[in-house]
Design a protein around this nucleic acid. Structure first.
Length: 415
RNA sequence: GUGGAUGUAGCUCAGUUGGUUAGAGCACCAGGUUGUGGCCCUGGGGGUCGGGGGUUCAAGUCCCCUCAUUCACCCCA
């Protein structure tokens, strides 16, 4: 279009009725979290850059996709690309490790990544997420996943299937890493260029390459390398989920991009989203808070959920019902009384509006017709006698009532 | 960051091998019904053809650049 001022690339204007649906999802998410005991935390949308650097130096998200700027005071700041690091910072800064553990938190808000926009991938998107601090037990992982599933389900996506994996811990992962590197070195000549460099930079990511899928089928499975603790953790977690009535499938290739994870990683997708696989994803990151100068051992699990993606798969479940609003129309010269009557009705609890354009009655009715509801007509002889006209647009029924009886009538009819 | 597709009214789109004042449907506004909507009829407002440059007697149409959108890769929610 020829608009001179356009929104920045990869951003969107969320207009009604989409904005109303987003608001409903937000309410469902935060409500559900609260029922699980997770209370809302609001952190700034920007942080000092080192907060994110500390957390994922080798990640694309913080390496190439940062929205950073220096403010006029010379401070290096970054728009948050995800919620976990910011919540960890807040947990440490506010001394929440001194509260009774575990601490259950959730967040909701915009995230920023400077990537190339694509379907359901934006430079600003909205995430809901939850974080559980203070427990190393598999019950903690399970609860967080159950919360994510509950939200997804309440929003209208029945029977979510969770893909889970464990990427081990500092005891067992190094051995697996070596085995993996060894295997891929042998195949090196047949690998795609990306994977050839990945061997050195981030070997675990070799597993979710979409080109060399034949090669990875033969690759060593981390499952064979899990230490006793990791193995027990994984099997207890999946058992808990199954006992809770959730469907779980292990995905040996699931490793996830943020490199602060240990043990549990999980994800859930939806067929309708095409290449945008994940609806929500998360995992355990026991070392994260410590990296941000928190106490020595501060275990944590959490997930992030993409609201725009979620909405895209459940949008049809969110038909916005037209409000039964009252439209106060007026005859020529009765603009004032109609505005006042609308205000009185609002104070009595009716969603009401009046014409502000001094339009003809015909135009007012046409306008009201689009909003489907009740029209109250002010003016003329009826008004002189303390009466108003009332007309229901769906069936055309019309009557005249005393002004004092109007709200009773409207109340009765809306039941 | 890499590769492909697309950009004509608020929306969905026509526009023939370049050829006069660029069209339709929907939406919007007004009138037909001087106190009554949804149907119908009539009329109206709206476009620097994404932007810039070039070729040509002539460009919405051809060429180059740019911006934006979109799809895939990368990566992720």
């Amino acid at each position: 279009m020829r608009a001179e001022f356009q929104r920045p690339r990869g951003t969107q204007d969320i207009l009604p009725p989409t904005s109303q649906k987003m608001e409903q999802i937000r309410r469902i998410a935060v409500d559900t979290a609260q029922r699980f005991g997770y209370l809302l935390v609001e952190t700034p949308v920007f942080e000092q850059t080192p907060v994110f650097m500390r957390v994922g130096e080798s990640t694309d998200i913080v390496q190439h996709e940062r929205y950073s700027f220096t403010d006029t005071g010379g401070v290096d700041l970054t728009l948050r690309p995800e919620g976990t690091a910011a919540i960890a910072r807040a947990y440490v800064e506010n001394g929440m490790f001194n509260q009774p553990q575990p601490v259950r938190l959730c967040y909701y808000g915009p995230m920023f990544r400077r990537e190339r926009p694509q379907a359901l991938r934006y430079r600003q998107h909205t995430q809901f997420g939850a974080e559980l601090y203070g427990s190393v037990q598999p019950e903690a992982d399970a609860e967080v996943i159950l919360l994510a599933c509950a939200v997804v389900e309440k929003v209208g996506l029945p029977d979510p299937v969770i893909r889970v994996n464990s990427i081990g811990c500092s005891k067992c992962r190094p051995r697996y890493r070596e085995a993996l590197i060894g295997y891929y070195q042998e195949q090196r000549s047949q690998l795609c260029p990306d994977c050839q460099t990945r061997i050195n930079t981030n070997p675990l990511r070799l597993l979710d390459c979409k080109i060399d899928i034949a090669i990875r089928e033969q690759a060593p499975d981390i499952k064979e390398f899990w230490c006793e603790d990791c193995s027990a953790h994984y099997s207890q977690l999946t058992e808990l989920l199954v006992l809770s009535g959730r469907q779980v499938s292990r995905d040996p290739f699931l490793v996830r991009g943020l490199d602060y994870y240990n043990r549990t990683v999980f994800e859930i997708g939806h067929p309708s989203m095409g290449s945008q696989a994940a609806l929500f994803g998360g995992g355990r990151y026991d070392g994260l808070a410590t990296a941000l100068d928190g106490p020595e051992s501060t275990p944590a699990v959490g997930f992030g959920m993409g609201i725009e993606r979620l909405l895209s798969v459940v949008e049809k479940n969110f038909e916005i019902l037209p409000l039964t609003r009252v439209y106060v129309a007026h005859l020529p010269g009765f603009e004032g009384p109609s505005l006042v009557l609308a205000e009185q009705l609002r104070r009595e609890g009716f969603p009401a509006e009046s014409d502000l354009l001094r339009r003809s009655l015909k135009a007012q009715l046409r306008d009201a017709g689009r909003r489907s509801g009740v029209v109250v007509i002010v003016g003329g002889q009826e008004w002189e006698q303390g009466e108003v006209g009332v007309k229901w647009l769906e069936n055309g029924v019309q009557m005249t009532v005393k002004r004092e009886e109007l709200s009773d009538l409207l109340r009765r009819q809306s039941e």
